[in-house]
Design a binder for these strands. Structure first.
Lengths: 127, 127
DNA sequence: TTTACATATTCCCATATAGGACTATAATGT
DNA sequence: ACATTATAGTCCTATATGGGAATATGTAAA
């Protein structure tokens, strides 16, 4: 059979955002609403060829959408596909929430003990 | 001289979770707390070699931690590094929230204005 | 020690990049 | 029609995989 090297970057959003430059593009699009390719080229300082190819990947995955405006292509984020990533990491949120909550509780307990022995007016832990 | 092929999977969390099987491992670890490699091998149905290698990537990136127990290695999630991904996608959340339609409309209006201007360099959005 | 078990690592290799340079396509202007 | 601009796509190539098999390392039991 064929050996698999790795999944295509165009296969899903996770692969698409694995590339720092592509994340950068998404950040710019999110910050400024929508941008033409030429603008992105200027902002990023990368060759047009590279920018277009990264946009191509993001487009194939569906995380950006294009709007033809004359000879320009204006890109904007199609948030629905980014939501895929969000929905995946979200459940893990409780893992560090738990951790932080435990640390906070511990700190507050210690603060209360110290308050009892030394400083009666302090009752709040570090936020 | 040096041509870059692609970023290493071990360079950051985004690359690490780009692989479906690695995401699957993280899901299992999150669901069941902590698991030995052998258990993961059984649950996943993949060769031990493959599982170990994927765990190696996740380990190097720091998204999992190991605990030696006898001749077993028990893996658990180190949530702090997953938070990196969460923190990155979170700002995009507003794009698919109830603001979605409004933002989209605004973006398209701005895009149309940009398309009318000749020089992409002079587009400095009001920050 | 020897044996058995649990994991990690090494070797080989087909393949998917990502970048640079160049080219093709499409829309607009003269 | 021809030139110009904006962007996409193609060709080439060094490199980083990821899988399978085999092997090494480490740990505990007989």
């Amino acid at each position: 059979m064929f050996r698999m090297a790795r999944a295509r970057t165009t296969s899903d959003v996770f692969n698409a955002i694995a590339e720092p430059r592509r994340r950068q593009i998404l950040e710019l699009l999110a910050a400024r609403g929508a941008l033409a390719v030429g603008t992105l080229v200027v902002l990023l300082g990368h060759p047009q060829s590279a920018v277009s190819k990264h946009l191509g990947v993001l487009r194939k995955v569906g995380v950006v959408a294009v709007l033809k405006q004359g000879k320009q292509r204006v890109y904007r984020i199609d948030a629905a596909h980014l939501k895929t990533v969000h929905d995946w990491v979200k459940p893990f949120e409780q893992l560090w929430d738990h951790h932080l909550a435990r640390i906070k509780a511990l700190a507050e307990r210690r603060a209360r003990q110290q308050a009892f022995s030394h400083n009666p007016q302090q009752q709040k832990g570090p936020s």
